[in-house]
């Protein structure tokens, strides 16, 4: 059972590598942020899978924290950065 968990975690990591391309290239700041948010969610899923594959229950707490703090990052972006005239190339 834990083999499937590990394989799926690896598959999600490949997804992350593809999304990294969007973070590096994304035309507008919002695209970069959305890719970073996807990183957060997929990171939560990978942590959960690893927690059940390795039997480390404490990793679920780390996933919980990650899900919580993605909100703070996104809110800081929407309320602090993007209200200014910032074209993404400055």
């Amino acid at each position: 059972m834990s083999e499937l968990n590990l394989i799926l975690a690896g598959f999600l990591l490949v997804n992350l590598l593809a999304a990294l391309w969007r973070v590096a290239r994304g035309p507008t700041p919002a695209d970069r942020l959305l890719a970073a948010l996807l990183f957060g969610t997929v990171g939560v899923a990978i942590l959960l899978l690893l927690a059940f594959a390795g039997g480390e229950a404490a990793l679920v707490d780390a996933a919980l924290l990650l899900a919580l703090l993605a909100l703070i990052t996104g809110a800081a972006f929407a309320r602090r950065i993007w209200r200014e005239e910032h074209d993404g190339h400055s």
Partner: peptide, 17 residues
Amino acid sequence: LVWLLALAASATLSYLI
């Protein structure tokens, strides 16, 4: 609880952005 938190964060951020 993890899933519910992610749901709330996703909905809020989608609206804000």
